[in-house]
């Protein structure tokens, strides 16, 4: 079983070394650098603002760009179609009639996607952090890198599960989920936002980077980052990732994936 997962992982990585995928890798790495550079270029007189404001704004910007957008976009593109792409090209049956083949393909592709997305996120972060001139670049880089290692597996697990549950509309459902839950619901100051990955990452970013913009009970914005300690968020994210991946495996094994109904019955 582990050997099969490793086989899928290495095969997928070999297939990922094509020119279009390398180009996507570069786009993902360049995206935060480009945006951070533009912002820095526009805000040339940022030193004149209130003390600490630029640091807070630029760190939140980096958070939004790397552990959020790059991680979401990268994992959405590579994890969501893990099964649907095999069904569309009708290669699924070749894989599914191998011992533990379906599970190995799912897990191997998941690991390949996560390890494919983390490097461009880190490269982009490494270049973008000093570009913003926050003053404590090392601390911000360290915190946001840690978030990358939590966000990529978590988002990949969500998209993996959605792709298994809705193989025929996987991308549409994944984009809808991202827009509705991770970008809207996560900002609703109510208990429901605690169900999103975004809430956990945001709380960790605020804590690790000492971003106290919302960190006043009087502001009424505490619900956006919560009061839980960092370990609580980390454990929640790690457990959530494992539970989602396990759920994807269970759903995959229970489902019927056959194109017979579409072709020759």
């Amino acid at each position: 079983m582990i050997g099969s997962v490793v086989a899928v992982f290495s095969f997928e990585w070999k297939r990922a070394l094509t020119l279009p995928r390398k180009a996507w890798w570069l786009v993902l790495a360049a995206f935060p650098v480009f945006i951070a550079g533009l912002v820095r270029f526009t805000a040339v007189n940022h030193e004149n603002g209130p003390e600490g404001l630029w640091r807070h704004l630029s760190t939140w910007l980096l958070f939004a760009l790397v552990p959020m957008l790059v991680a979401m976009l990268g994992t959405l593109l590579w994890t969501t179609p893990a099964i649907s792409s095999e069904l569309e090209r009708r290669s699924w049956v070749y894989l599914a009639v191998r011992p533990h083949g379906a599970t190995a393909v799912l897990l191997g592709k998941y690991l390949a996607a996560v390890t494919w997305v983390i490097p461009p996120a880190l490269v982009g972060l490494t270049i973008a952090v000093p570009l913003t001139g926050t003053g404590d670049s090392w601390r911000v880089w360290r915190a946001l890198s840690g978030l990358v290692f939590l966000s990529c597996p978590a988002y990949a697990a969500i998209y993996l599960l959605l792709g298994v549950i809705f193989p025929r509309r996987a991308m549409v459902v994944a984009v809808a989920y991202t827009l509705v839950f991770e970008l809207v619901v996560s900002f609703i100051p109510a208990v429901i936002n605690k169900m999103t990955v975004q809430y956990r990452l945001r709380a960790l970013a605020a804590n690790w980077c000492d971003l106290n913009v919302f960190n006043t009970r009087e502001s009424g914005a505490m619900a956006l980052i919560g009061t839980e300690p960092p370990w609580h968020h980390i454990v929640t994210l790690v457990c959530l990732t494992f539970v989602l991946v396990a759920a994807a495996v269970v759903v995959l094994r229970a489902r019927e994936f056959s194109s017979s109904a579409d072709s020759d019955t």
Binding site: A7, T18, R90, Y94, L95, R98, P99, V105, S263, D264
Partner: peptide
């Protein structure tokens, strides 16, 4: 079990050798 499906469905961007070898790796 060995199964040869009716549809095509093989990865077009890899060699025949890589494809067959990959599927055998999935056999453990």
């Amino acid at each position: 079990l060995g199964y040869c499906p009716g549809g095509e469905g093989m990865y077009s961007d890899v060699t025949g050798y890589d494809w067959v070898r990959y599927l055998q790796r999935l056999h453990g």
